[in-house]
């Protein structure tokens, strides 16, 4: 009889739930116990530096473009001391809008913007969730210790002339007629 089958299922459900009385909760008691966060956890956003200690961000605007909540704003500028080395004049992330999706990190061509395993970003005032470049920029290389965009890219910077990047030939002598 279908009614009995239903009744049995209902009671079985009750029994299964009731059995949980005798199991240990899975809850992690957060402030006292801290969970392990894997290195690729998508938490707070940082701006990293390249192995030479220079800012990695070249203000390409890709992170801002890809951001689904449009919470990244920046302005490109040139470093007067090293011509052609572009950097962000300001770089602002409004964390009160950020959804930690990590698209910015995926879009970043220079590994500058990285999400780190830190989620403790509670504030009492929303304006404190607005991070400027000073707040974002760290002094290390983050997850990618070796990459240096300017060693690969063909543009000239202060201490690297044309042809000085990895896998480049010296600049062409236009006046040469050699085959």
């Amino acid at each position: 009889m279908i009614v009995f089958a239903y009744t049995r299922d209902l009671l079985l459900g009750l029994w299964i739930v009731f059995k949980r009385t005798f199991t240990k909760p899975v809850t992690v008691q957060y402030p006292e116990e801290r969970p392990y966060l894997p290195p690729r956890w998508r938490g707070r956003i940082v701006l990293t530096r390249d192995p030479d200690g220079e800012e990695r961000c070249v203000a390409c605007h890709l992170c801002a473009a890809v951001c689904p909540v449009d919470c990244i704003a920046l302005q490109a500028a040139e470093d007067p001391t090293s011509y052609d080395r572009r950097y962000p004049e300001f770089f602002r992330i409004n964390f009160s809008r950020c959804i930690y999706c990590g698209y910015c990190e995926e879009a970043c061509p220079t590994y500058a913007i990285q999400l780190v395993p830190d989620f403790e970003q509670s504030e009492y005032a929303r304006r404190n969730m607005v991070y400027e470049k000073e707040d974002l920029l760290i002094s290390g290389t983050g997850k990618y210790p070796d990459y240096n965009f300017y060693r690969v890219a063909g543009v000239k910077i202060r201490d690297k002339d044309k042809g000085g990047a990895e896998n480049e030939r010296p600049p062409v002598d236009v006046k040469s007629l050699m085959p």
Partner: peptide
Amino acid sequence: SGRTAMISH
């Protein structure tokens, strides 16, 4: 881009 961050400062 930057709709929610352009003037958030």
